Computed example of a mutant assay.
Amino acid sequence: MKKIFILFLFCFFAFHSFSKGVVSLLPSITEIIVEYGCANRLVAVSDYSVVPPDLKVERIGSLYNLNIEELIKLNPDIIFAEVSYKSQLSDIPLLRDKVVYLSFLKLNGVFESYRVIGEKLGVKKGKIQQKVDEIKNLLEKLNSLNKCKGKRVLLILNSQSNRFFACGDNYFSEIFNAIGFRNALKTKIPYPDISYESFYKINPDFVIVLSAEKPEKFLCQREALKKLNACVGKRVFYIYGEKVLHAGSGLKDLLNQVEVKLEQCFK
């Protein structure tokens, strides 16, 4: 009886130490973990991660201010990180074998990240496939409804200052291509910096601004852009929210907002 009790205690503590030993170093990763119902296994997340309000986790910095000392002290079982963290973490003996590197640059990388995170957390294969299929089905639905197929879209990330970052060769561009639009910006650079002059040179049919929050100043209110055809024709749309720039559940939020905001194309 005593042996059974000891075995029970061992299994109990082994399970709970495992179930609380995950660190996420990217908001998109955090969202996928939460989406899988594994938020209780998080012990620390990156600064901009969105977690359930009742979940108490440490904020451990981000790519440029990562608290490595605290990360070592936490001694997690798994550290999920984007590939750009490799230069910081690969040479630290106490951490390097615990890090799982993921890429969210392309859409296939997003799907692969869902698979890898799910497998590492012990999520059933059926549930992993379900989450990936939810995104693919939304893309197919919007493509079938899209009456503006072939239109050239310029995707802008945030617009709070006079500096603009566009979507070049990245998963945002692939998403809109899958829906049936064409990226008006032809470049292999994932997030190029563009000028006011570039807006007129590109002359897109639509401009879509993706932002974490509602902009203080809208694009077409800027004197330099008031004559842009998309501004004159009222074809500039804003999609904003806490998660729309993230590749987890925020991706679904983005797609749902696309259908609503670009009503002229989907109704």
Rank of each mutant, 00 (worst) to 15 (best):
L26E: 12
Y238W: 05
P190I: 01
V153D: 09
D205Q: 01
V83G: 05
F8L: 14
L157N: 10
F181G: 02
I78D: 03
N158D: 14
R235M: 04
V244G: 03
S87V: 11
V258E: 08
N183A: 06
P215E: 03
G37N: 05
S144Y: 10
L89R: 01
K2G: 03
G109K: 01
G37S: 11
V99G: 00
G61M: 08
L94I: 01
N67G: 13
L145Q: 15
Y36G: 10
I202T: 04
S28V: 12
K141M: 14
D47V: 12
F104N: 03
P76H: 12
F199W: 01
S113V: 01
K131S: 14
A81H: 07
L139Y: 08
V83P: 05
Q257K: 15
Q257R: 14
K243G: 02
N65G: 14
G248S: 06
C265F: 09
L74K: 11
L107R: 02
M1R: 01
V45S: 14
L139V: 06
S46E: 15
F80R: 05
I78G: 07
V83T: 14
G118D: 02
V50S: 15
D91K: 10
S173W: 03
E242D: 12
N162E: 12
V123M: 07
F176E: 00
V50F: 15
K234Q: 13
L94M: 12
A166T: 05
R59C: 10
K98S: 02
I135T: 11
F104L: 10
M1L: 12
G180H: 01
S144P: 02
V34M: 09
C148L: 14
T187A: 08
G61F: 11
S173A: 12
G250D: 10
Q160M: 10
D193F: 13
V236S: 10
A178H: 00
I6S: 11
E69R: 07
F164R: 05
F12K: 00
F218G: 00
E174G: 10
F164S: 06
L9N: 11
F181I: 00
F237G: 03
P52E: 07
G180E: 00
V22H: 03
R235Y: 01
Q264T: 08
L245W: 09
S24H: 06
P53Q: 09
L145K: 15
G241S: 08
E119Y: 02
L251Q: 03
L255F: 05
P27V: 00
E35C: 11
V110C: 07
K151G: 07
P204M: 08
E140Y: 14
E216S: 13
I78H: 08
I175N: 04
N256P: 02
L219D: 03
V99N: 00
Y101P: 03
H246G: 09
K217Q: 06
F15Q: 04
S62Q: 04
G37K: 08
K127P: 00
K106T: 04
V57T: 10
S159L: 06
K127S: 11
K136R: 15
S198Q: 09
L262D: 04
F176V: 00
D253K: 09
C148A: 14
